[in-house]
Simulated assay, not measured.
Amino acid sequence: MKKIYYLFLAMAAGLCCTSCNNEWEDEQFLQMPSLKAEPNSAGVTPVYVRYDINGTKRYNLPVIFSGSTMNTHNRTVHFAVDTDTLRSLNEERYGKRNELFYQQLTSEYCTFPESIEFPAGECQTLLPIDFTLGGNNGENPLNLSDKWILPLTIVDDASYDYQANPRKHYRKALLNITPFNDYSGVYGGTKYMIYMDGNKKEPLTLNEHRAYVHDDKTIFVYAGLRDVDFLDRKLYKVFIEFTDERIDILKKKLRIYSDNDKNNKFKEIGQSYYTIEEEMDPQKPYLKHIYITLGLSYEFEDYTTIGENNRIKYLVEGTLSMQRDLNTLIPDEDQQIQW
């Protein structure tokens, strides 16, 4: 009886072994191309590009083939501008407030190939996007008071040898173009005091103020409490030019001005300055910290909130500060900065 029992077990084990295969060697999913462009809370993907009014800067967008095995065929993947998705984003986020809409970047400011070759044996390649932020021949610079988007999608067609990933944030990418220079970025504003009508007892503050690129040596911020979501923001830009003229050992002079001072009555008070300090991280020796402090003092008049006949005068003084961290092990500058 025992022999029959053991024989039965041996036969069962043999059947199990012959029915098994190495399923991990077979493709478990459908291989589909996807764009690697993870959106932030606003539904867009920030793309940082060094500002150069006269040159071309390249950004390489990763394209990935999904699946549990390596891509087995040579394929040609096609791309196009996706105006419809950008329109939907604007309508869902801002309704009818057109002044706040993201603007679509045109071919004057960027170019990319309509297709790229995806070689067999590779699961990732790059879509090169060339930015010319100065426009044609540097004569029409991009207006950085607006928010610019390059909306891309992977094109699907029955004649193509692939199926695009159906998931929205894999097939599509809303690239929010963010030019930068050595001084742009998000500054802390807890010591940046905004006084209304000379009332210095109750200053207004914002935790953060974003500084945008104007040129290689100049940034601009919005005066007082304004930010990019104010409809009248373009009327209250404060330009900050970094000079090499020293005030003392640590401080250098800033030149600040407005392009609308006839209307907003912008006026600098005293001498604005900046300091820059650098140090390597004591625990991560490859990480460089750059500390930038801006000392600003100016006044302006708000003539749009209530009306020309009911101007509100503001005094702004204090410091804005920013820490920029650089991973010196990364050769690409746009990737080196820890945004």
Rank of each mutant, 00 (worst) to 15 (best):
G67Y: 06
Y303C: 00
Y170E: 12
E114C: 02
F131P: 01
Q124M: 15
E308I: 11
F118D: 05
S145E: 14
E25M: 04
M11K: 00
E333N: 14
Y162G: 10
T328S: 07
F65M: 15
D130E: 07
D130K: 06
N327T: 09
T304V: 09
V81M: 05
E299S: 12
Q335F: 07
M322T: 10
E202T: 15
M32I: 10
V186E: 07
Y286Q: 14
A120C: 14
M11R: 00
V186I: 13
P128G: 06
D248S: 06
T178M: 08
N264Y: 08
E208K: 03
G185F: 03
Q336W: 04
N309E: 07
R246F: 05
D332F: 06
Q124H: 04
K313Y: 14
I64T: 02
T56P: 07
V49H: 11
L250M: 02
L225C: 01
F101D: 15
A10I: 09
L7R: 09
S159V: 11
Q271M: 03
V77N: 05
I276Q: 08
Q104E: 13
N98K: 15
G121L: 14
P62A: 09
E308W: 14
G224C: 02
Q335N: 11
G138P: 09
S159W: 07
D157K: 00
Y273Q: 00
R226W: 04
I292M: 11
R233F: 03
R50L: 13
K234C: 03
F220D: 03
A158P: 13
N54S: 11
G198N: 11
P46H: 12
L15K: 00
